[in-house]
Design a protein around this nucleic acid. Structure first.
Length: 483
DNA sequence: ATGTCC
């Protein structure tokens, strides 16, 4: 158990566990928090897991964790680990089971008052049109072999099939198409699971939410993103479904078999990994990129279903029911990037697990429309609470390999939440707050109770205060659709 | 997160 005696405070929101804490640490571990958020992680193993990641071969600078951190598979969720190429490691546990789980923000030209009479119908239409729930299949059937093309082309596949616009792709991280995706490195079982699940929400903490813009913090940046006070927006939180899950399972198993030949001694089996330069490392990277492209397409097809839903309910009733894309970000990924370490620019593999890329202004990897303001970052809160739009800063580039948090972060486990909360009662409470709820599983709803999560506003205060992101807008929920 | 065991 790691206590406050084991770490030192670097500044108001940053703490460090020095390398001397454990003989096997290659770099110090740093985490962002305030006193309240520190208390929230005392009940789990996330700090120990953070220290464990500091032992990984090839890690540079620091093992990092964001203020929403909590216990995960091997790596903490909210963890950021960069390893130096060519021989630093890549680890499936540093990405997570839901490869390219992420968030897409869509915006309308409607103000809340204009949409209010139709919210009930919009919630029902979204629930009817966007398949959700565990193992659920979708409306869009792929021809045999088409999935291989889909995972290579990503959002470009959706564009060609009429499910996306050029503007959507420009407003998606990496244009919604990662290079180096190879379906030949993906098992038939993963493909079978993914075959009919594209364009589906899933379960757990995945959701579609209608929100309104509650507060603007940076008017010029918000205007650039097309965001204004009182505006109705839509958020999608989903990932790569059974496809990505199976890719992760397959490679965890395969890499466990090859781990000993590289002579790594790991403090936890779940940190299973391979050098990026190895055949297994390269194969996982290619399979992970395929799963990431699958997830981009998944959120794109959900966007298509959302647009159909708005059309069905609002056509002829409001002057403009168009749904625009603001941005789409991944928060479970490993990416090869260049970063400055000890005054030199080097190539690293940045694992962001429950962490979001947040590049500062001027990055050549940002689309022209957003290059001068920094990368838009979308941070959903827990159900019924606020969500945030931010931008990356120069500070995120120097402190965290251009990364910030991904959400509120759990405080208690799913199983504990299920025991403590009754789904039906929670639904009543949300409806009493004026939030329309559509949900297929009441126990699933209980697992996602706001009381099971940290306070997202506090998490945002930390990343903003630490200078690794800048607040742009705060959103509050009007309707939530869950699996 | 996830056809919560192939």
């Amino acid at each position: 158990m790691i206590s406050s005696h084991d770490f030192k405070q670097i500044n108001k929101y940053l703490y460090e566990i020095p390398r001397s804490f454990r003989a096997d640490m290659r770099v110090p571990a740093r985490f962002y928090a305030d006193s309240e958020l520190q208390k929230a992680i005392q009940g789990d193993r996330s700090l120990e897991q953070l220290v464990n990641t500091a032992t990984l071969p090839g890690i540079v600078k620091y093992a990092l964790a964001m203020p929403d951190m909590h216990q995960g598979y091997g790596f903490p969720i909210g963890g950021v680990v960069a390893t130096q190429l060519p021989d630093g490691i890549i680890s499936p546990g540093g990405v997570g089971y839901d490869i390219n789980c992420g968030v897409r923000l869509l915006a309308t030209q409607l103000e809340k008052e204009e949409a209010a009479p139709y919210l009930e119908d919009l919630a029902s239409a979204l629930y009817a049109n966007c398949p959700s729930g565990l193992g659920k299949g979708g409306h869009i059937k792929l021809k045999p072999g088409e999935l291989d093309l889909l995972v290579v082309k990503g959002a470009k596949w959706a564009l060609k099939r009429g499910y996306a616009t050029e503007s959507d792709l420009e407003r998606t991280e990496e244009g919604g198409c990662l290079e180096g995706a190879d379906p030949g490195k993906v098992s038939d079982r993963a493909k079978n699971r993914g075959q009919d699940q594209v364009g589906t929400l899933g379960s757990g903490n995945h959701f579609i939410e209608i929100d309104m813009v509650d507060r603007i913090f940076d008017e010029p940046v918000a205007t650039r993103m097309g965001i204004f006070h009182n505006q109705v927006t839509v958020q999608i939180h989903s990932g790569s479904r059974g496809f990505g899950h199976q890719v992760c399972s397959d490679y965890v198993k395969r890499l466990q078999k090859t781990i000993q030949q590289y002579g790594f001694s790991l403090p936890d089996r779940e940190l299973v990994c391979a050098p990026l330069s190895s055949p297994e490392g390269q194969d996982y990277l290619a399979a992970m990129n395929a799963a990431a492209n699958y997830a981009f397409v998944n959120r794109q097809l959900l966007t298509y279903h959302i647009r159909r839903s708005f059309e069905q309910v609002l056509a002829g009733k409001v002057k403009n029911h168009h749904v625009y894309q603001v941005y789409d970000i991944a928060h479970n990924m490993a990416r090869i990037e260049e970063h400055e370490v000890d005054g030199r620019r080097i190539k690293v593999c940045v694992h962001r697990k429950g962490a979001t890329r947040a590049f500062g202004p001027g990055s050549s990897l940002l689309p022209g429309i957003y290059r001068d303001i920094g990368q838009p970052v979308l941070v959903p809160g827990s159900m019924g609470t606020a969500s945030w739009v931010l931008v990356g800063t120069e500070g995120s580039m120097t402190q965290t390999f251009g990364s910030i948090c991904h959400g509120a972060g759990r405080v208690i486990s799913r199983s504990k939440a299920k025991k403590a909360v009754r789904g039906a009662k929670l639904r009543e409470e949300l409806e009493a707050c004026g939030i329309h709820v559509r949900v297929s599983s009441m126990s699933g709803l209980a697992e996602e109770a706001p009381s099971a999560y940290k306070d997202v506003d506090r998490v945002i205060e930390v990343v903003h205060g630490a200078g690794i992101a800048k607040k742009v807008a705060r959103l509050i929920p009007l309707a939530v659709i869950k699996g």
